[in-house]
């Protein structure tokens, strides 16, 4: 799919650029002339309406679908400690165990960080745009903190897969705490965490920071 997006995106952008250059170079006399006016109008409509809509559609498909990949998360260096830890075979963090045991087959970051349902997914995208703006403007401080849903992780991201399993239901405390777990008042991470390296481990200058940020393991894992 990525190749198709590349071909379509490049093709549409290049044709659009050529049309814009042509319209840029068009003299005012030609615009006002009656002869050939229909051709100019058609070219302008294609260059200012049709091609931008198509190009934006193709590129946004990548924005919404492509960013679900782990490699997209790894693109921002603040995510390196999380992604590198997840890829380590010797890590015991929750993310690493899910990744290395292939409990989640693909799009591991997105699967645990999109709240369940349509509105959750839209909220995730909104958060993504906010994170993107903060990342490119440098308005963040490491170690990054979790602010979603008032600062706590929504258990429904876990329960959407685990709640229906026999193994989950066989644990008596899950039944006792069911209401608290559903409302995220009691975090799954209290017993099953940590999900990622701790804030202390991710603090620049700490002993573990260098090891967690270098080398990037994502390429090697492919």
């Amino acid at each position: 799919m990525t190749t198709l997006i590349l071909i379509l995106g490049v093709g549409l952008s290049l044709v659009g650029l050529l049309i814009c250059m042509r319209l840029w170079l068009l003299p005012a006399s030609k615009l006002n002339a009656k002869a050939g006016a229909a051709g100019v109008k058609l070219t302008a409509a294609v260059g200012f309406v049709v091609l931008p809509l198509l190009a934006v559609g193709v590129a946004n498909y990548q924005t919404f679908e492509g960013v679900k990949e782990v490699s997209s998360c790894a693109g921002c260096h603040v995510m390196a400690p999380m992604v590198n830890d997840m890829l380590r075979k010797d890590s015991t963090s929750l993310a690493a165990r899910h990744f290395n045991n292939r409990w989640i087959a693909e799009k591991q970051c997105y699967n645990c960080h999109s709240d369940y349902g349509l509105s959750g997914t839209i909220k995730s995208k909104g958060d993504g745009f906010r994170h993107l703006a903060r990342y490119v403007t440098g308005s963040y401080k490491e170690p990054i903190e979790y602010h979603r849903s008032g600062g706590f992780y929504d258990n429904n991201n876990c329960l959407k897969c685990h709640a229906v399993t026999e193994k989950f239901q066989a644990v008596s405390s899950h039944g006792t705490l069911r209401a608290n777990l559903s409302s995220s008042q009691t975090s799954c991470l209290n017993c099953h965490g940590p999900a990622h390296p701790t804030a202390l481990q991710r603090t620049p200058g700490s002993k573990t920071y260098e090891a967690l940020t270098h080398p990037p393991l994502l390429e090697a894992s492919r």
């Binding site: 990525t2 590349l6 995106g9 814009c20 319209l23 840029w24 931008p52 590129a59 990548q62 790894a74």
Partner: peptide
């Protein structure tokens, strides 16, 4: 044409660098 051209240029760059923030 200038604004749309800039839009196409940035879209072109984006599809070539899909994982660049």
């Amino acid at each position: 044409a200038l604004f749309s051209g800039l839009g196409f240029l940035l879209t072109f760059w984006f599809v070539f660098n899909l994982h660049s923030p």
